[in-house]
Amino acid sequence: MKTCLRDAAVAVAAVSAAVALAACGDADGGSGGGADGLKIGLLLPSSQTSRYEEWDRPLIERRIKELCGACTVLYANAQLDVDRQLQQMNSVISRGADVLILDPVNATSLRSLVNMADQAGVPVVAYDRLAEGRISGYVSFDNEQVGRLQGQDLLKAMGKKADGGQIVMLNGAPTDPNAADFKRGALSVLKGKVKIGKSYDAPGWRPAEAHRSMSDAIAALGADNIDGVYAAGDNLATGAISALKAAKIKPLPPVTGQNADLAAVQRIVVGDQYMSVYKPFRPETDAAAAMAVALGRGEEGMLADIATTTVGNDTTKDVPAVLLTPISLTVDNIEETVVKDGLYTIDQICTPEFRSACDRAGLTG
């Protein structure tokens, strides 16, 4: 124990001290849970996007309990605050986490702590976003395919204007590695087809940022010169559509999205938003839970049965990975996707405000 304390004392930051002490505690028979009582840290980035609290967290916790009845989940949500997530990661490690499931607010800022956790024997499963550092597993969707679906549907919705028309791009947070993948996928479809009049990043994926950027684009390009809007996520579509409506633009140009938020599905029904990208959460959450339990139990060989491919990040090659297939969601396939999968019921979508639009879409009757 003295050696461990000395290692912690000379660590370069308080977070590394917590990691070192956590490792020492496990070595001395401390708070580490062992195969039948693992502590699994679950660190999610935001509650502004509804999926994390409504779907990711409960589904991951449920699957962990199914795989390991005595396991404990140490949960924290960073609310898009990088410093808060650093503190939360530090906290769950110091509380004896055996393994982490991490969806990073900022992959670069967390790299050193990911590496320290790995050195201390606390493996990290990167969830939904590819964390930097020595991760042990990764679960997400094919993010470039997400962007390609958005680009393809935007061109389809633009019709004749898809050949030479002008669009505005509202990309995700520059600190989010997924946002770069979405943009890359979208541009692989859009470049050479349309003119990109304005392109903006949205720090924190905040709707207010998208509203400001869309308002700026309308002022710069003119209300009649925007033929489509690439919004990387449904929360950005929220801001874009509010700005378009504030400028009294009718009809609205087609707007894309992602995550199949309930409000976005309702906007699709009424025609304010053309599409979203539906990413079935259960396969993603199940894979992350299975990876975490296997790693916590020291069963790294089991990852080969879970992973479908490998990926690499800034420091690690051949990371076992599960990359799932996203689905384009439009008014034409709401019933066979989000309703069939139990994400929402018809009653949840078709509230009185949206009843007539649901009737026109064939969702009620």
Score class of each variant (00 low, 15 high):
residue 355 R to K: 15
residue 176 D to H: 05
residue 28 D to T: 14
residue 153 D to T: 05
residue 336 E to V: 15
residue 264 A to T: 00
residue 295 L to R: 05
residue 170 L to Q: 09
residue 11 A to H: 07
residue 188 S to R: 05
residue 14 A to I: 13
residue 257 G to F: 06
residue 144 E to N: 08
residue 27 A to H: 09
residue 140 S to M: 04
residue 290 A to N: 11
residue 250 K to M: 12
residue 222 G to Q: 10
residue 29 G to W: 08
residue 266 Q to W: 09
residue 100 L to Y: 00
residue 20 A to L: 07
residue 232 A to T: 03
residue 59 L to D: 03
residue 361 A to P: 02
residue 94 S to R: 14
residue 92 V to E: 01
residue 180 A to W: 04
residue 57 R to G: 01
residue 260 A to S: 08
residue 261 D to R: 07
residue 130 L to H: 01
residue 265 V to T: 04
residue 46 S to V: 02
residue 171 N to F: 05
residue 30 G to E: 10
residue 289 A to H: 03
residue 60 I to N: 01
residue 267 R to I: 05
residue 134 R to E: 02
residue 173 A to F: 01
residue 135 I to K: 01
residue 186 A to P: 02
residue 181 D to K: 09
residue 54 E to I: 00
residue 83 D to L: 10
residue 119 Q to K: 10
residue 102 L to C: 13
residue 52 Y to W: 15
residue 222 G to I: 09
residue 266 Q to A: 04
residue 200 Y to R: 07
residue 30 G to Q: 11
residue 288 A to Y: 02
residue 278 Y to M: 08
residue 201 D to Y: 07
residue 194 V to W: 01
residue 41 G to P: 05
residue 200 Y to E: 07
residue 268 I to N: 00
residue 364 T to C: 09
residue 47 S to W: 06
residue 199 S to W: 03
residue 115 N to M: 06
residue 216 D to P: 13
residue 8 A to G: 14
residue 226 I to G: 06
residue 304 A to K: 13
residue 158 M to L: 13
residue 17 A to L: 01
residue 64 I to G: 04
residue 121 G to S: 08
residue 351 T to S: 11
residue 16 S to Y: 11
residue 341 D to H: 03
residue 320 P to N: 04
residue 209 E to V: 14
residue 50 S to P: 15
residue 22 A to W: 00
residue 312 G to E: 06
residue 222 G to Y: 11
residue 353 E to I: 13
residue 296 G to P: 03
residue 231 A to I: 02
residue 221 L to W: 06
residue 2 K to H: 06
residue 137 G to T: 02
residue 105 V to E: 02
residue 13 A to L: 09
residue 167 I to M: 03
residue 251 P to G: 12
residue 42 L to F: 05
residue 119 Q to L: 14
residue 21 L to W: 06
residue 281 F to D: 08
residue 195 K to R: 15
residue 40 I to V: 07
residue 142 D to S: 12
residue 309 T to D: 09
residue 109 S to R: 13
residue 292 A to W: 02
residue 95 R to G: 07
residue 78 A to Q: 00
residue 5 L to C: 13
residue 122 V to P: 03
residue 93 I to W: 00
residue 136 S to Q: 15
residue 120 A to D: 04
residue 149 L to D: 08
residue 159 G to W: 12
residue 98 D to G: 11
residue 340 K to T: 05
residue 238 T to K: 10
residue 28 D to E: 14
residue 21 L to E: 01
residue 348 Q to V: 09
residue 27 A to D: 11
residue 220 A to G: 15
residue 39 K to E: 03
residue 301 G to L: 04
residue 164 G to H: 07
residue 299 E to M: 06
residue 19 V to W: 00
residue 226 I to C: 01
residue 61 E to N: 04
residue 308 T to Y: 06
residue 321 A to K: 01
residue 39 K to A: 02
residue 97 A to E: 07
